[in-house]
Structure formats: C-alpha cells, structure tokens
Nucleic acid binder design. Sequence first.
DNA 1: CATAATACATAAAATCTCCTTATGTATAGT
DNA 2: ACTATACATAAGGAGATTTTATGTATTATG
Lengths: 298, 298
Amino acid sequence: MPSKLPPLSSLRVFEAAARHGSFTRASKELGMTQAAVSYQMKILEERVGTPLFLRKPRQVSLTETGERIAPVVTEAFELLRAAFVMAEDASHNLLSITTVTTFATNFLAERLGNFQILHDDLAVRLDTSMSVVDFSREDFDLGIRSGDGQWQGAETHLLIPAKFSPMLSPDLAQSVGGIKKPSDLLKLPLVDASDPWWKLWFDSMGVQSEGLRGNKRSRMGIQMLEARAAEAGQGVAILTPDFYRDSLKRGSLIQPFDDVCHDEGRGYWLVYPKARRNMPKIKKFRDWLLNEVKEHCN
Amino acid sequence: MPSKLPPLSSLRVFEAAARHGSFTRASKELGMTQAAVSYQMKILEERVGTPLFLRKPRQVSLTETGERIAPVVTEAFELLRAAFVMAEDASHNLLSITTVTTFATNFLAERLGNFQILHDDLAVRLDTSMSVVDFSREDFDLGIRSGDGQWQGAETHLLIPAKFSPMLSPDLAQSVGGIKKPSDLLKLPLVDASDPWWKLWFDSMGVQSEGLRGNKRSRMGIQMLEARAAEAGQGVAILTPDFYRDSLKRGSLIQPFDDVCHDEGRGYWLVYPKARRNMPKIKKFRDWLLNEVKEHCN
DNA sequence: CATAATACATAAAATCTCCTTATGTATAGT
DNA sequence: ACTATACATAAGGAGATTTTATGTATTATG
C-alpha cells in the first residue's frame, strides 16, 4: 500500500544538506565527503523527478519543491531520533529480571531496595514466574532459575547451591517431644514426601526411609510454598537453609540438624544471554548480586 | 548534534515487520526475502542494544521497547511518504516556465488560457525575465529564449524565426506623407538605431544606411519595449511581424513593406533540459506550443 | 502419531550500493 | 591574475545487503 520511498540514505543526506544549505557542511556533519553528498542528492533528485537544490555559484539553495519537503523530512528524522534515544535509554536504564518465586521471596525482596539505592539510574522490573527462561522468547535481561546451570547460550553464575535440611515449626517438634534423631522426623507428616531431597537426606544420615520414592523432579522453584506450610505447622519440609535464615532466627522454623545435604551441581543460578554480558546494567546487577550472595551466605 | 540513527534500511524493515507482526509478510511487502528481514532485524537489535521482537513459535511479537518505538517509526515513515507524494505531485503537476517578455506579451499571454483549459491538471507558473536560462540554477521546467538555439545540454525547438520588418504608427507615417519606399524611413527617428537588424534590413533592400552601425547584440528579448515606443509614435521600430499581428490588425502599427528579413538561425526558442524531455508535463506543453506556433504563424 | 506446512534463523556467496579518491569547473575574494 | 571555496563527475573498491540453501521448532492434518 505505502508508496515507494526514495533511498533512505539519500533522505538522511538531504535532510542535513537542506538544514545547512550546503553540501560541504552537510558532508562534515555526516562524516562523509562532499562528493558523496553530491552523489546522493543526484540520486534523490533523479528519483523524485525534479531538482531539489539550485546550484548557485558557491552555494546551493532549495528549489520550491525542496523547500516544501525539507521541513517534513527534518521532522520525520527528529521523530526517529527521539524514538531511538528513548529505546536506547530504556535499553540502558530499565533492568528486567525474571526469577523463581522462592528466590524472590527469600532473598531478593529484602535486598533489592539496596540495589535501587546504589543504582538509582536503573529502573528495576521484577517478574516472578517458574517457567523456563528463554531470552529470545521473553523480554528479560536476566533470570534467576533453579537447575544444574546448563543453559545453552547463557552465561550462568551459581548463586546458592542446592543444600537442604529438614525444617519444621517449633510447635510441631514439641508435639512429638522434640526432634532428637533423624528418624524422629518420620513420626511427622512430610510437607511433600515425594520431594527427592528427602530420600537424599535420609540416605546421607543413614536412615532407612522406605516409602520415600523421590520420583518427582526437585521443585526448588516452589520451595517457598513448602516453607509456608512448615511454618504453619502442617508438616516437615526439606528446605535450603540460606533462604530461611530469618525464619530460623525468628524461631518460626527450626532446623533440628546441622547436617546439610548438597545436591551437587544443582542450585539457584543467575542466567543471562552471553551476547549481552557486557551491558552496563547487566554487569551492575551481576556484581551486586554475587556480592550479596557472598556476604550473606558464608 | 543529532544523535546517530541506526541503519535506515533496517528501520524501514522494522516498520513493516512491526506493522505486520511477521517477518515473512513484511518481506513480501518490501519485495525481499524473509532471510533479509531477519538479518536486518538482527542488525537493528544489535544496534539498539536490546531485542525488539520476541521470537515465538510461529510468529514474532514486539518487546516492550519495540512496542514503544514502532508507532513513532511508522509515523516518521508516513511523514516521509507524504512529503514525497507531495513532491512528486508538484513535480508532475506544476509547470513553471520562464520566458522573455516579448514572447510572453505578444504570444503566450493570449494563448495560455487555452493550455490551461486543455490541461486543467497542470498548474502553470509563468515568469518573465530576460536573463539567460540555466536550469541548474533556476527552478524552471521550460524556458523560452531568443538566440541561435545553441544551449548545451538543452533540448531546443525553434518557435519563431527572427524575421523582422520596420513598423511604425500610422500617424508617424502620415507625418512624412506616408512611407512609399524604404529610404523614406530614414526621415524618421529609429527607436533603436543601434539594433543590428536595421542594417541587415536596409542592406537587404539595397538602401545605403550609413550611420547604422549595428554594433550591439540583438535585443529581441525586449522587442516589446521598442514596439510600445513605436505605437506611441516615437519612432520606427524593427519588429517581428508574427508578434504584432494584433497591432497591425488593429491599426496601431503599420508595416509599410512586406519584405521581411530573416536573421538565419536566430529566433525564439523553446528550451528545456534534455534529461527531462520525457516528463509528461514537458511533453504536453511542448506539443501544445509547437502546434500553436504552427497554426498561428503559417 | 507421522507428515506436511509454516515461520524464523543462519551461513555462504553474490550482488550492488555507497563512499572515497582524484580531478574538473565556476566563482568569489585578494 | 591568483588563490581559495564550493559543487560535479568518473572510476574504483570496500562494505553492506540480499539471495540461496538449509536447519529448527511448532502447528496443522490425515
């Protein structure tokens, strides 16, 4: 439908030449030679079918037609420039992160304020969702995901290894006279008995745990739900202690055993596209986050 | 000052792709392959520093940033398209002519109305000036000039040969008892004795005309002034009869001798740039004018 | 459920645009 | 007259853009 436009490069040149009333000055602005400007204007005039400049002795001036279109072309280019300044600005100053709920709730939420203060030029958009990150399909700069760190094309940093240990509410522990040895836990309901971590943990403690099949994939991403259930006294959950420092300190959860299992290789990872690893906003967040993790989780 | 824009070709592609929400459809509109669109969008995204499209299974959709700039880019391109429609329109439908005064007054003025009626899609701008036509320096489609038809780079058509014969007002003729033979004219003042045509004409009539030097260049372009002087009875002028049919018919001028001299090669010419000889508006005017001349000046 | 069809990505090669260099012309200033 | 300025033009080449060919993922279909 839209009628054919002249070569766009010639329009850019026209815009500058019209603004300066001079091919030479336009060429300087555009960082090209005067010959190139002359050439482009010839192209454009041929295309439009009518001269746009009058060649006076030592200067050029616009013809009637040129005079008519020049301001419109200038306006159009200003729109474009404005649009891309906006875009680049957004690209530099808007940081959007997608993270698994657990990490957002138990780690990021309470610390993000710090980051914002540190980098008040960055606006942060935080999205919590569990789905796999695919940066080519979703509009995020960085993601935090649980897994084994194998995401192709992505730069990854292990934030928190998948360590785990049982936790429960003090009341629940009291209800069976306290938890003295691992097998005491089996007297209580497990929040999610199918979580493979249970078997791993009991195995490592040398406790026979028939019936714990561990046939499900780990659901680290939604640990948080299990944690809430445990806090509410509904059962024992197997959780990552690093995330529940606060609850443990407050006493809303207790960790009966210091023994922490480690699901080697798995954990919470920071992920972002390799190609964008050098963007300032990405560096800023990465550096900040890695430092927070280091400081906070021994 | 203006910040650098991304490659313009990629913008054109982006505009179409955003509008269609599809690389394939955009490629069809732009008359290129889908691969080319994909490539251009990659370029643009690299340049802007952020993705503009999300690659979904069998479609693409704009990212937040893409969404933000798309309407602006579309608007800019619409401005450009509008500007060039205007320009092309003007280029097609505005005919500007520069002509020597004599020809305008004595020939064109009374006939141009006809042309306008015949081609009411063309707006005619008529400029009368004597200066030499240089289409690269002045904004005209066609020129009518007197001379020998030697204008380089120009297409030329002889309209009216430089024929000439003395003319004067009837009263003036009466004042010397009428003009019977050429030498009678010498009893009267010549409007411009230095006009070389005088010598040519007297010579051709076999009349000795000492004192008529003819050292000036012909000033055909301003014959009209001499004609007015002659009509006012101020002297005898040497004029091109074709231009003064009306005055002769009205009787405000008389041409005492049918003998008409011919300054071979010289005359009134229609001139226009060779490069533009095929423009419809130029053809229309040329054909009309040549026909008018043929019909009117035997 | 296998197959075909659709939409986009990517690599390599061909093409073509655009720019530069070099030079020429005309004009204004000294 | 001479120099400097501004634009035009031609030739050559670097680089950008496009196409061709192929791959991948997803949806639709028999």
